[in-house]
Design a protein around this nucleic acid. Structure first.
Length: 493
RNA sequence: GGUUCCGUGGCCGAGUGGCUAGGCACUGGUCUGCAAAACCAGCUACAGCGGUUCGAGUCCGCUCGGAACCUCCA
């Protein structure tokens, strides 16, 4: 059978070229994707989660199309300096000092938190999740290779990438972000510790560790630790090769992080790494991006528990995910309680339509063009992963399903196709989670509810409206909604 | 100051020059003992000013407003 990726070829908006391009993998049928993961020194906030949820959507869709995807997402567990100056402090060491913990305890704690949050949001684990500290050897040899080529220099125990030398000999530092060297120099601020560098645009490949610095490794240039940009170059090359397909990350990493990665890769391998660069946009709160350092954040845990002054109530992880999926990954998305409430209603409507669809019969007829609808769903996703358009199409199907009241005017084959595609889109691709009650609990609840509904039906037959309404109102307070229909009463939670 | 991007109806949010995005909210109707849900119908729009075009939310210019990056950050 023809793989789905041939039927619905993918186009990707490539940050490197600024164009939407046909996606052609380096190796046919396989995709190598690298996404810059979090620095694990504090709880992952909702903005972080959005980026990884966006790439989870992309990962899921590419897999669904039949690609063999290797998805690499790193954990940054080397602290890195708080600013580019020598006076800066290692974030993880700082947190460790504040909390009186070993640095790797900090790393472990927040890595576990990150995994928990992403799992609740329905994100699949990546194929490989390498750590920076686990790839010091690879990073040191990369530094050496760049030194050997003459595009780096050692200064006081640290090694810096020589941007000017790189660009003079054919390098294209600035290709991703559109920045020019002279503009960078004009715009750069006078920072402390810049005197080790020949040029303000130069960036650290290896930093000398001060005597108090805890996380340190021996190197040909003395004890130190790798520069922030280096780990991604080293690990993407190691696991995906010198040329791979997709490199993703948050928009805020475009410059300088990804720009530096490209320069490092080209310096070592003559290849820039990824063919397609993708940048997920920011989640804003009060019109400003969420940021750990400014404290303008909301944590996923607060959302799931409702424990935040900005929230009227708790929201399920699936609702939060649906909220994110309603916006395109490349657009800024603004967070608000109102937007979440609206998303929750839409989400519930979508999932309750799925329940109806599961139990629906096909009565024949041409009530809905399933083939065309299915094609439109795939085309939306293949067009740069346009989940909002996909959701709009899903609601077309919802309207048809609800109007049919369990008896849909399509053929049995079409019903099967509708179910399969609906389920694939909602659960496999968007990654939403239905009522995930264990089936034993569900059976017990169903039986109890059948009894309550029967008792209420008797009251209604006796025109005992006060009893009937009491049952309905009390159940509603408990979070269970009764729906009276022509064929009896059903309930939803 | 530089780079990139955005400004869509009450709110969120798609729109890759020409045909209803969608969700939420609201109004009227159908259904119901009353509700709810669902369905049907309606309702508000493209920041402003010019230009290109037979035709612009979509292209170009200017103005105003906002964001990200230029320093660690998804």
């Amino acid at each position: 059978m023809e793989p789905l990726y041939n039927t619905y070829p993918v186009a990707i908006e490539n940050s490197l070229t600024g164009e939407k391009e046909a996606f052609i993998p380096v190796n046919a049928g396989a995709v190598g994707m690298y996404v810059c993961g979090p620095t694990v020194y504090s709880d992952v906030h909702l903005g972080n989660a959005r980026t990884f949820t966006s790439f989870d959507l992309i990962f899921r869709y590419l897999k669904h199309l039949g690609y063999k995807v290797r998805y690499v997402r790193n954990i940054t567990d080397v602290g890195h300096l708080e600013n580019d100056a020598d006076s800066g402090e290692d974030k993880i060491a700082k947190k460790a000092r504040l909390e009186q913990l070993e640095p790797m305890e900090i790393v472990q704690r927040y890595t576990v938190d990150f995994h928990n949050v992403m799992a609740r949001l329905g994100a699949l684990p990546p194929s490989i999740e390498p750590t920076a500290t686990g790839h010091i050897v690879e990073q040191i040899s990369m530094v050496q290779a760049i030194l050997d080529r003459g595009w780096a220099y050692e200064s006081n125990g640290s090694v810096y990438f020589d941007v000017e030398a790189y660009n003079k000999e054919g390098g294209d530092y600035g290709i991703l972000s559109g920045r020019k060297m002279d503009e960078l120099q004009a715009g750069s601020r006078a920072l402390d510790g810049q005197d080790e560098k020949r040029n303000p645009a130069d960036f650290a490949l290896w930093k000398k560790a001060s005597p108090a610095h805890i996380m340190r490794w021996p190197s040909p240039w003395g004890d130190g630790f790798p520069g922030w940009h280096l780990e991604c170059s080293a690990m993407s090359t190691k696991y995906l090769g010198e040329e791979f397909d997709i490199h993703g990350g948050g928009m805020d990493l475009k410059f300088p992080h990804h720009e530096c990665e490209i320069a490092q890769n080209k310096a070592c391998t003559n290849h820039g790494g990824a063919k397609y660069w993708m940048h997920a946009n920011m989640l804003t709160l009060n019109g400003k991006r969420m940021s750990k350092s400014t404290g303008n954040t909301i944590l996923p845990g607060e959302l799931f528990s409702g424990n935040n002054d900005l929230l009227a109530k708790a929201f399920s992880p699936s609702v939060v995910r649906f909220f994110m999926m309603q916006a395109h990954y490349s657009s800024v998305l603004d967070f608000s309680n109102e937007a979440l409430l609206a998303a929750e209603k839409g989400h519930d409507k979508l999932l309750s339509a799925w329940s109806s669809l599961e139990g629906a019969c096909a009565k024949g007829g041409q009530g809905f063009d399933v083939d065309t609808w299915k094609r439109k769903c795939y085309e939306a996703m293949s067009d740069n992963f346009n989940s909002p358009i996909l959701i709009a199409h899903l609601f077309e199907a919802v309207k048809f399903i609800n109007a049919g009241e369990g008896n849909l005017a399509i053929s049995p084959d079409e019903l099967t196709a509708l179910r399969n595609t609906f389920s694939a889109m909602v659960f496999d691709i968007l990654g939403l989670q239905g009522g995930s009650d264990s089936s034993a609990h569900k059976d017990a609840l169903d039986k109890a509810m059948d009894l309550v509904i029967e008792l209420r039906a008797q009251a209604r037959n006796n025109k005992d409206w006060s009893t009937a309404d009491l049952i309905r109102d009390q159940l509603k307070e408990a979070g269970i909604q009764l729906n009276d229909g022509p064929e009896g009463t059903s309930y939803s939670i």
